[in-house]
């Protein structure tokens, strides 16, 4: 079986700092990482391969430096990395991104399952996974927290909902998006790291995947960013002082109106 994992390179947000003078993001020296949610997708694909046999391909869209993200997951055991990279993709929103990835997947051709993280940590939209499924006219199971059973024809997975979880059966091929609960991603082995260093990353341009210019990048994106600004950072308030009894009394005094209001 052939599994495809879609990954995105994102800034490591633990390093994001706000410049106190200009109130803007300080991006200098911010490391890039694989989107944390995608690591669960990578791990799940590797487990499926170990169980059912086959290969796993990681696919990413991004600038040339996103190659590093693909090498990182190859070190975990992914067989092959493909980067779709082209200046024509700059400014893609989720519509154009899911179109571009879907076109690359069409070029890859034969596959049983596409696995994505539920969302990326920089954009937080959760729109690209279902978008790929729609462009390829595939069924989807989003927010998967556990795979119950799987063979070469179908899958039963648990989808996490707000008030519980449901068991969903889907024929293959299909698209899954996974949540953190599904597994604990493995660390790269030494052997994996060696393989990653030597791996040849396949690079495809817009032309290679047959993407229509009107559907990629800024032109292919229905949404346009018109303004970017920094919100006023949240200010700290009051540190209560005194004996525990006194602090508790002060706090209850401050909160009682809201608490009574909510109770009604």
């Amino acid at each position: 079986m052939h599994f495809i994992v879609c990954i995105k390179q994102v800034p490591d947000t633990t390093d994001v700092k706000i410049d106190p003078k200009t109130n803007t993001l300080m991006r200098e020296g911010v490391a890039s990482i694989v989107n944390p949610f995608d690591m669960f997708a990578v791990e799940e694909a590797l487990r499926l391969k170990e169980k059912l046999g086959g290969t796993v391909t990681a696919l990413s869209m991004g600038p040339p430096q996103a190659e590093a993200a693909l090498r990182e997951v190859i070190a975990m055991g992914i067989d092959k990395g493909i980067l779709v990279t082209d200046r024509a993709f700059a400014g893609s929103d989720t519509w154009a991104t899911s179109y571009t990835l879907a076109m690359a997947i069409k070029k890859i051709g034969d596959f049983s399952m596409i696995i994505c993280g539920k969302q990326a940590s920089d954009g937080d939209t959760a729109q690209v996974g279902p978008g790929i499924a729609t462009h390829l006219n595939l069924p989807q199971i989003t927010y998967v927290r556990k795979i119950e059973e799987v063979d070469d024809k179908h899958i039963v997975a648990q989808r996490l909902l707000e008030d519980g979880h449901e068991f969903v059966d889907s024929p293959l091929p299909c698209v899954l998006t996974v949540v953190k609960e599904i597994n604990e991603p493995r660390l790269a082995s030494l052997k994996g790291k060696m393989a990653a260093r030597k791996a040849v990353i396949t690079k495809w341009t817009a032309q290679d995947i047959g993407a229509e210019p009107a559907k990629t990048g800024l032109d292919g994106s229905p949404t346009k960013v018109v303004k970017i600004f920094t919100p006023t950072p949240r200010q700290g308030g009051q540190i209560l002082t005194g004996e525990p009894e006194e602090m508790v009394r002060k706090l209850v005094e401050q909160l009682k109106d809201v608490v009574v209001g909510v109770a009604k």
Partner: peptide, 16 residues
């Protein structure tokens, strides 16, 4: 919000 709320973006869909 984007980037964990560190920046805000205003977005439109003018042609769709």
């Amino acid at each position: 919000p984007a980037f964990g709320g560190n920046i805000m973006a205003t977005i439109i869909s003018p042609n769709n």
